[in-house]
Simulated assay, not measured.
Amino acid sequence: MEDRHVTFELVSNIAKTYGLDVNEMKPLGGYIDKNLLLKCSNGKEYVLRIKIQTFNQQLEEMIDEGLKHFQTAGFQVPFPILTVTGEPRGKCEFSNHEDSQFCYPVHLTPFIPGKTVFDAGFNADELHIISRNVGAFGGLMQNRLMTLNSKKRIRRSDFQVWYTENFPIVREFHGFVENEALRSKLCKLIDRFEQAVTPKLPKLRQAFVHGDYSNTNIVIVDRIQASSQYLTDEQLLAKIGILDFEYFHYGYIVFSLTTCIAYMMSQAAYAGADPIFVAGEILRGFVEKFPLNEDEWDVVFWGVIARLTSSYLMSIRLLSIATDPDEDYIMCQSSKSCELLEILTSLGEAKVKNMWVTK
């Protein structure tokens, strides 16, 4: 997107598609799809996503239903801005230096001010408090999603390995682990998951879930307040936003929570915070707003184990097969996974769950 010709084409496309004059354009994160922060002449800021990945119309419509459901309840979400013709998605055409033409779907959303939990640089004390608020916000989100009535229940076919119930799939990537002892340990964790969780799947509640409720997608609008006190429901809606509904789907509720716990534990390890305490705070915040039943509580520990293991295995696999891998980017969420797995398995499920309840 740094090519001046492409940038000129993009600015022209935005003016034609959305009726906006772009004054400034800044690239944001995104591994496949391209995300850009736009500052426009109307004084407002927007995020433009250029969809490089395969476009699924039904999936996008389902996501829009979820976004609208959140927006009407006061959640800060990236609900798409309509094009000048009233469509939630537009198209942008580009040409390269060989004059080959490319056309990608795009959508424009309001910019949610603030920083993600991952980027905010919280210290250990702040992280201990923000974790309770992150959990509570997740519980509020899930309460809202329980009232979403949609007939569309689509899942991304390219995301199957990340659905926690499919965790055993990652066994095929164990060969990317060079250390034999570590490879054996990870395989044993997969075996334990199959024994402890797979038979319980029919008993677990399903509903619409965000799909990637993690520290990279949770925006803190007011850092000082969100990291210094436990927030009320009204404050949670005002001080926290949520991004990236690309993996929004109908699935197991408890695994949305365990995904959040795993990534927040990783951030805790980086920040010098207590990862077990952080996990417990997320859990306590979540269940205050959305109580778990006994079957869901039974699989929380192994859901966290599954995401930490999957994150590590998928990262080292990508490092091995990528042509020009960015190791810092690829491993930013998983380099602490093995350390955390050692902590969890050394303590054991019973002791960890007791610490999560009593701390």
Rank of each mutant, 00 (worst) to 15 (best):
F94K: 00
Y213D: 02
Y213N: 00
F122K: 03
M314G: 02
R171L: 09
E288A: 15
R307K: 10
V278S: 08
D158T: 15
N217K: 15
L48Y: 02
E172T: 05
V134R: 00
N143F: 08
I343T: 11
G43D: 11
L108V: 07
K289V: 06
K203N: 12
A136W: 04
M265C: 13
I169A: 03
S335Q: 02
W302F: 14
K91H: 11
T7A: 06
P110L: 02
G66F: 04
I330W: 01
C332M: 12
E2M: 07
N215K: 09
S337Y: 02
I330Y: 03
K51N: 11
G251A: 14
Q333V: 03
G138T: 00
L28F: 13
V117W: 03
E246A: 05
E165V: 13
M1D: 07
V134K: 00
N96V: 08
G121A: 08
A269Q: 12
Q160G: 11
Y270S: 14
H97P: 02
R132S: 11
T358L: 13
N133S: 12
V278M: 12
Q206V: 08
K68A: 12
V299T: 13
H5P: 03
F79K: 01
T259R: 02
V300P: 07
I253K: 02
S310G: 09
K91A: 06
S256C: 05
R4N: 10
F286I: 11
V254S: 06
E9C: 09
Q57S: 15
V300D: 09
G175R: 10
N215E: 14
M25H: 01
L243K: 07
S228H: 11
R171G: 06
V177H: 00
A207E: 05
E24A: 14
D233P: 00
F102D: 06
L189Y: 14
F55Q: 13
I224P: 01
F255K: 03
H174N: 14
T345F: 10
R205N: 15
S41F: 04
V287Y: 08
E180M: 02
E87C: 04
E234Y: 09
T309H: 05
G29L: 07
D244W: 03
P105Y: 11
Q195Y: 09
E246G: 05
K44H: 04
L182E: 01
Q53D: 15
C187I: 10
Y213Q: 01
F122H: 05
L237I: 09
R89V: 00
G30Y: 12
L237E: 04
K203G: 08
N123F: 12
V254H: 05
N354V: 09
K151A: 15
V106C: 07
K115C: 12
F137Y: 14
I14R: 03
W162A: 01
S256A: 06
V106E: 02
E246L: 01
K188L: 08
I316L: 02
T54M: 14
F245K: 00
E9N: 07
L313I: 15
P78Y: 04
D244P: 06
D324Y: 03
L36R: 05
T83C: 06
E281H: 03
